[in-house]
Design a protein around this nucleic acid. Structure first.
Length: 523
RNA sequence: CGAGGUGUAGCGCAGCCCGGUUAGCGCAUCUGUUUUGGGAACAGAGGGUCCCAGGUUCGAAUCCUGGUACCUCGACCA
């Protein structure tokens, strides 16, 4: 009941004739769905997600519990995310570095909240050698090779980095330090789901050191903006920027800023976080600097990260019962061209024509895949590339060769039309921009339609069952937050930075509330 | 970590309850021919430690015990 069936037609092609064609096409799509064996969203949203990740060839489960294999098509999307994000980090003055996978166990416990937050999900290295099993059945851990200090596999790198920063920082002239690293981390999760929560995942973690509190807060906020811009402009995923409540805060942070996205099943997904760490880690690792007046001060810190979980956000925001829908800016290839031919002679002629078109498209920076394999029929290819979310499909047959046209189909609206080859490159470029804008608008409309304001707790209990974001007044206490969570399974996703800031009274206790906060059930 | 379900060819499944020739079907693969504007047709071929380890039995995919992996729902989780 939370799903909207999007079948938005572009205005320029909307006429009665199109309607008939589309009805016919819907029938084909239903056939295609059965063959794809993709569970529909209304039947089971989580099964749909699972099916889609596997069938669109994004990732699969591995031999190691909770760890996934990211397949080439899925990794290509991640690589694009990395590239754009990395450019944005560089533009904001950051540099990349790399810190170790292993962290001495004692480091983790230096910051009290931090160890409390992560201790329960750490993988621990206790030995450094194997030996042949005396009974001949393979290898066993060599008990003689026990590590003096056990190492943990990083669940995040604050401790090893701040231990290192101590040596890098003496004076205010050494600040700020603006480092980022692209890395893998391990958090031993009990229940995993591809991309959304896995024991090992890929991410970037920025770690910055500043001379003043104001500068560090500004940094944390700045990176939140970077994340929000990336989510909206590249992923086409609308997000709410906000601050986490105390109980949802990063272990060791003073403030955690977050971007929250709304998935099609009405659940929220935390998609990126940026932390103002105050002087907590500087104090834990004794990182001080001499300021301009010659006095010793503790360094101010931030950290911020986004992970392969963004892949989950991307999939669950746009995709439909026919498969993946990718924003043109992140699609591994933006256009696929399928030839329709009888005999080798026709194919050769089409190959030549397509080479011309491809060259023109590539000159405009558009990525193209030409699939002229002859072991699959065109219809098979159509369905396959729909499943994989390719934004634009072009089909070129004998008829088009004669008429100097090509059939262009767009994945977001599932509409197609025949267009002239004159200026096809510019036409496709514009179309890709339009698709990028359209899927963002669709997602933004969905969020708007599923964000509701409530006044009373009874109303809240009723509305939360329907899914979506709920804006309500809260008295700011962890006790009230906990009560709401226990009774409704909803959590405070964030205290929004933008929007209505009118004070009111808490829906549960009637105590004063500074502003409405955003509630949802979450992944 | 708890409850339930599943594991048989690359993929999807039947067979198991009620043990008995050579373990079967669809898709995919290979060969050939015809096809190609929304998942092509015919003919032929190849492909299996029936999740693993024990046990019961003349005989186990099938029954029993233990293990393991995945899925669903909980608990947990920034």
């Amino acid at each position: 009941m939370y799903f909207c069936t999007y079948f938005v037609l572009p205005l320029y092609s909307y006429n009665e004739c199109t309607v008939i064609k589309i009805k016919k096409r819907q029938k084909y799509f239903e056939m295609a769905k059965e063959l794809k064996e993709l569970t529909s969203r209304s039947e089971s949203y989580s099964q749909w997600y699972q099916d889609l990740v596997i069938k669109a060839d994004l990732a699969e489960n591995s031999a190691v519990r909770g760890c996934m294999v990211i397949k080439p098509y899925g990794y290509a999307i991640w690589e694009k995310m990395q590239r754009y994000l990395d450019d944005m980090f560089k533009e904001t003055g950051h540099v990349n570095a790399y810190f170790p996978l292993f962290i001495p166990k004692s480091f983790l416990s230096k910051e009290a909240d931090h160890v409390e937050g992560f201790a329960k999900e750490c993988a621990v290295v206790t030995h450094y050698r194997l030996k042949n099993n005396p009974d001949g059945s393979g290898v066993v851990v060599d008990p003689a090779a026990k590590l003096e200090e056990e190492l943990i596999v990083r669940p995040t790198s604050e401790t090893i980095i701040w231990n290192t920063y101590r040596n890098w920082i003496q004076s205010h002239r050494d600040l700020p330090i603006l480092c980022n690293q692209w890395a893998n981390v391990v958090r031993w999760e009990m229940r995993t789901r591809l991309f959304l929560r896995t024991a090992e995942f890929l991410w970037q973690e920025g770690h910055t050191a500043h001379a003043t509190e104001a500068e560090a807060v500004e940094e944390a906020r700045k990176m939140l903006e970077v994340y929000a811009n990336f989510a909206e402009q590249y992923m086409a995923v609308p997000v709410v920027k906000g601050v986490k409540s105390a109980s949802e805060r990063f272990a060791g942070a003073i403030d955690t800023y977050t971007i929250e996205a709304l998935m099609q099943d009405g659940k929220a997904l935390q998609s990126g976080t940026s932390h103002f760490l105050g002087q907590n880690f500087a104090k834990a690792f004794d990182v001080t600097f001499t300021d301009k007046n010659g006095s010793q001060e503790y360094v101010w810190a931030t950290s911020w990260g986004v992970s392969t979980r963004l892949m989950g956000a991307l999939i669950m925001t746009h995709s439909d019962d026919n498969g993946l829908v990718l924003p043109p800016k992140l699609a591994p290839f933006q256009v696929v061209i399928v030839p329709i031919f009888k005999g080798e002679e026709q194919l050769n002629a089409i190959n030549e024509k397509v080479a011309e078109i491809t060259a023109k498209l590539k000159a405009l920076g558009i990525s193209v895949k030409y699939d002229n394999s002859d072991n699959k029929k065109p219809g098979w290819k159509f369905a396959e590339y729909e499943l994989k979310g390719v934004p634009v499909r072009m089909a070129m047959g004998a008829r088009d060769m004669q008429n100097n046209t090509v059939e262009v189909a767009r994945r977001d609206t599932l509409t197609k039309e025949t267009v002239s080859l004159d200026n096809i490159d510019q036409y496709i470029k514009n179309l890709l921009d339009e698709i990028q804008a359209n899927i963002f608008k669709k997602a933004a409309d969905y969020r708007t339609n599923n964000t509701r304001t409530v006044e009373t707790y009874d109303e809240f209990k009723e509305e939360i069952e329907k899914g979506g974001f709920i804006l309500a007044h809260w008295d700011g206490t962890p006790e009230t937050e906990e009560l709401i969570k226990t009774e409704t399974k909803a959590t405070i996703r964030c205290i929004p930075l933008e929007g209505d800031k009118t004070p009111g009274v808490c829906m549960v206790t009637g105590k004063p509330s500074a502003q409405r906060v955003l509630f949802a059930r979450a992944y």
